[in-house]
């Protein structure tokens, strides 16, 4: 086996990593902790972008603040790391300014659903042609593991040492109710399904939303007695794939069962189509 590991990757003998052309390899190893799920979800996004056949010169990635927000800095495409919670408004502007672009928003649950919650529901309501990928690690990882809008009931965090008294958001239900045209949920363990789903979402017009459950071993996992591998085993044992399930059944509660799959796949006129039809009348 030494023969495979000693020569440098990219040399004549050893082919490069298949995503080497899409990552800024001078910044790798990235800042994400050992066992963090963001890297896997990010790799799935890049693979999906590549295999979907879209023009990558006309593809942009936008992220907000947080661990997942760093993704925009690692992709070798036009990308923007916006202020906290404002990934979707920035992406909306990008899309309206140049409707030819494929805009992918890659951000975390805190960014998209806590400070950016309003932007999310309104972009979904207008059916902006965006692909929103939300890495849900169930807490505010970057700032030290505080309780977030997605922290499960009774889960321990830095700010809820005796357990979270509140109920979390059901993200696919929120997206469905706001009018998203594509809604799916996977975990980082279901990478193949996730990649296929992202590919579908990128090629589909309209507001697509994909929730990716990923472990946060350092902040969430440590306080809830879950090592990174244990979280992945939980994903294997406590999840069930049920496409087109009722969105109100999709709560994330790992003491019971978590439903994964594709929940919404419908057509609706996009924001730009509706605007052109209403406000840009033929002369």
């Amino acid at each position: 086996m030494q023969a495979a590991t000693t020569p440098r990757a990219g040399s004549a003998l050893v082919p490069e990593h298949p995503l080497e052309d899409l990552i800024r390899s001078d910044r790798i190893p990235h800042i994400w902790c050992p066992g963090c799920g963001i890297g896997t979800a990010f790799a799935a996004t890049l693979t999906a972008m590549k295999s979907s056949g879209i023009d990558l010169h006309k593809t942009c990635m936008v992220s907000g603040i947080g661990c997942s927000g760093r993704a925009a800095g690692y992709v070798k495409l036009d990308s923007f790391h916006t202020t906290h919670g404002r990934a979707i408004p920035f992406a909306t502007g990008l899309k309206l300014g140049n409707p030819e672009l494929n805009v992918v928003v890659f951000s975390g649950d805190g960014d998209l659903f806590a400070i950016g919650g309003n932007h999310f529901i309104h972009a979904a309501r207008r059916n902006m042609d965006l692909t929103v990928i939300c890495l849900n690690n169930l807490n505010y990882g970057m700032t030290g593991g505080q309780v977030a809008a997605t922290t499960p009931h009774l889960a321990r965090t830095t700010t809820t040492p005796s357990g979270n008294p509140d109920a979390p958001f059901n993200l696919p239900l929120l997206a469905w109710a706001s009018g998203a045209t594509y809604v799916a949920r996977w975990t980082v363990l279901h990478t193949r399904e996730l990649t296929e789903s992202i590919q579908k979402a990128i090629t589909k017009s309209g507001f697509s939303f994909i929730e990716v459950l990923g472990p946060c071993p350092i902040n969430y996992g440590r306080r809830n007695r879950e090592k990174a591998l244990q979280t992945l085993k939980l994903y294997r044992e406590r999840t069930i794939i049920r496409n087109h399930a009722d969105p109100s059944d999709l709560d994330v509660d790992f003491t019971k069962q978590v439903i994964l799959g594709e929940f919404v796949d419908k057509e609706r006129p996009t924001c730009i189509e509706n605007y052109d039809k209403t406000c840009r009348l033929p002369e």
């Binding site: 082919p15 990593h17 298949p18 995503l19 080497e20 990552i23 390899s25 790798i28 190893p29 990235h30 994400w32 066992g35 963090c36 799920g37 963001i38 890297g39 896997t40 990010f42 790799a43 799935a44 693979t47 980082v188 363990l189 990478t191 193949r192 990649t195």
Partner: peptide, 15 residues
Amino acid sequence: HYCEIICPEFAIYSV
């Protein structure tokens, strides 16, 4: 390719 797609670090791949 499962090692390649589950790796969060772009560190392992198969050809």
